[in-house]
C-alpha cells in the first residue's frame, strides 16, 4: 500500500484535509469556538510528537479525536485560570445562528450545563455516532459508566427541557 492510499503524507496535509472537521468536533465538544480550536491545536501538538507511530497505524484522526476528548474531560483539573493563556473570546454563537442551521438553541445552551464527561459522552454518541463500547475506549471508562453518564446527561436535559416548556405555558 502506498503512502497516498494510506492517508495524508504529512502533518500539514493531514491538517489541511481534516482541520475543519476537527475544529467542528472541538466546538461541539466544548461549546466554545476558541476553546475548541485550542483543543485541536493541543491535540495536534501531541500528534506531531507521535506522528511516525500514529501514521503507521493509519489513524491519525482517531488519535487526535481521542486526545481531544480526553483533554476536554480532564479540563476540570485545569480550572478557570487556564483562560489566562487562552485568547479572550471574540466570537459568540447566537440563538439565530443555531436556528438558521435547524438546530435547537435552547438545547444547545442546556448542553453547556452538563459536566464535561456527560457532555463528551453525548457528543460521542449523537455527533460522532459511536457505540457505547467505542465511547468507553475513547474516554477510558467501562461501558456501564458510559451508559450511566449518558443516562444522567439525558435525564438532566429532559428535566430542563420540560421545565423550559412548562415555564412557557405550553404544557
Amino acid at each position: 500500500m502506498t503512502e497516498d492510499q494510506r492517508g495524508p503524507a504529512n502533518l500539514t496535509e493531514f491538517v489541511r484535509v481534516r482541520g475543519t472537521e476537527l475544529r467542528r468536533y472541538g466546538f461541539v465538544l466544548t461549546g466554545d469556538l476558541d476553546e475548541g480550536n485550542d483543543l485541536v491545536q493541543e491535540a495536534l501538538i501531541r500528534l506531531s510528537d507521535a506522528w511516525p507511530r500514529v501514521r503507521s497505524k493509519d489513524d491519525p484522526e482517531g488519535f487526535v479525536r481521542v486526545t481531544m476528548v480526553r483533554l476536554h474531560i480532564s479540563r476540570w483539573r485545569r480550572r478557570r485560570r487556564e483562560r489566562l493563556v487562552a485568547v479572550v473570546p471574540d466570537t459568540a454563537i447566537s440563538d439565530a445562528d443555531i436556528e438558521r442551521l435547524n438546530g435547537d438553541p435552547g438545547l444547545w445552551r442546556m448542553l453547556a450545563t452538563l459536566p464535561p464527561r456527560q457532555r463528551a459522552v453525548l457528543v460521542l454518541r449523537y455527533y460522532e455516532d459511536l457505540a457505547d463500547e467505542d465511547i468507553a475506549g475513547r474516554i477510558g471508562v467501562s461501558r456501564n459508566t458510559v451508559r450511566s453518564l449518558a443516562a444522567r446527561g439525558l435525564a438532566k436535559l429532559r428535566t430542563q427541557t420540560f421545565d423550559a416548556v412548562h415555564d412557557l405555558g405550553s404544557v
Binding site: G19, G31, L33, G36, I93, I98, L101, D104, Y127
Partner: peptide, 19 residues
C-alpha cells in the same frame, strides 16, 4: 434533537482552510 443541534452547531464553524 440533540444530534440535529450538534450538527447545526458544527456547521457554524467556518469551512475555511486554516492549515
Amino acid at each position: 434533537r440533540l444530534a440535529r443541534t450538534m450538527r447545526a452547531a458544527a456547521g457554524l464553524v467556518p469551512d475555511e482552510n486554516q492549515v
